[in-house]
Design a protein around this nucleic acid. Structure first.
Length: 307
DNA sequence: AGCGGTCAAGTTGAT
DNA sequence: ATCAACTTGACCGCT
């Protein structure tokens, strides 16, 4: 059974998360900044609940929460703690309601911090900023019951083994709230499944297999082999990613995501697995609807939320 | 109301 | 040395 995952936002549904910028806040007093940030965080908490409601009604069993659910949370000047926000009790209460809702309805949630989180970095300032961001996302993950915080391995710095060694060391030092949720994903520039699976096995870190990245940056493994290696790293329902290239597989720039998923890009070998597949397609919920119908037509079971 | 310019962060690689 | 590409819209400020 395949659990389909929606990533962060909607294409057609009027479910909108808000954000702001440090520049906009920079001219304001601290109280005014916190007022605005508090309004946005409250709005985003309510919007998260709306998104989860949508998932339940529409047979989507997994939702990826965007990193900016608390905008500028760890920014050097505008950053804040939840407790500083005017409505923080209400915000936390809504997160807890989301957790309960997800538990009752079998909806999985995940986080995917973006490219600025680099545990392989040799620079202590980059590392500290990365850890602060992971800590924030882990706090929200704990509130809402998310079991995955998925990151990339980061840069190479001209020496991949050394970079992997730094990554390994930092992973081992993570506090449990982060460590128990952290996963590593193969990317389309530097680190493949082949590069990562040993580290993942050694540290019991699940490997999120992105088959699109694998097709962009090959490592000699077949899709079947990479799938098998990744599956072995999971102690719970495995999480994989898929997308289709905007310009087709023969184009040099294969990294751009298409609006929809071509059913031919969905690996045959995945069809019989019990996995979560997050759908990285720009048409968002519309792409999931289409893929869900096409998979069902092929007889592939879809794990629906709701019971 | 509509549109264009702008937005925290790291790393790589093209120019 | 500089800067676009990752991804990606949402928001502000100007017509």
């Amino acid at each position: 059974m395949i659990r389909l995952g929606l990533c962060c936002i909607f294409r057609a549904e009027p479910i909108k998360f808000r954000t702001t910028t440090a520049k906009r806040l920079s001219g304001l007093g601290r109280d005014e900044q916190l007022q605005i940030l508090g309004e946005i965080c409250l709005h985003n908490a309510l919007t998260l609940k709306e998104a989860l409601d949508y998932c339940l009604i529409n047979g989507i069993g997994d939702f990826r929460v965007q990193s900016q659910i608390n905008p500028l949370r760890t920014h050097p000047s505008a950053g804040y703690q939840l407790e500083e926000l005017p409505d923080y009790r209400k915000i936390i209460e809504i997160y807890r309601e989301c957790r309960q809702f997800n538990k009752e309805n079998n909806i999985r949630t995940t986080f995917h911090p973006d490219q600025f989180i680099v545990l392989s970095t040799p620079y202590s300032e980059v590392l500290q900023a990365s850890l602060a961001e992971l800590n924030y996302q882990a706090e929200i993950a704990e509130f809402i019951g998310a079991d995955v915080i998925n990151i990339h391995a980061g840069g190479v710095y001209g020496d991949k083994p050394a970079a992997l060694e730094r990554l390994k060391k930092q992973l081992e030092l993570l506090p449990d709230r982060i460590r128990s949720r952290i996963t590593l994903e193969n990317d389309d520039r530097n680190y493949t499944v082949s590069d990562l699976h040993t580290l993942c096995k050694d540290l019991d870190i699940p490997l999120v297999y992105d088959v699109h990245h694998h097709r962009c940056l090959s490592d000699g493994l077949t899709v079947e082999e990479a799938t098998a290696l990744s599956l072995k790293t999971w102690n719970r329902e495995p999480l994989f990613h898929i997308s289709s290239p905007k310009e087709g597989w023969n184009n040099a720039s294969c990294q751009y995501h298409h609006d929809y998923i071509a059913i031919s890009d969905f690996p045959d070998i995945w069809q019989e697995l019990d996995i979560t597949v997050e759908i990285e397609a720009k048409a968002k919920e519309l792409a999931i609807k289409k893929l869900k119908e096409e998979l069902s037509d092929k007889g592939v079971g879809i794990r629906l939320p709701g019971n």
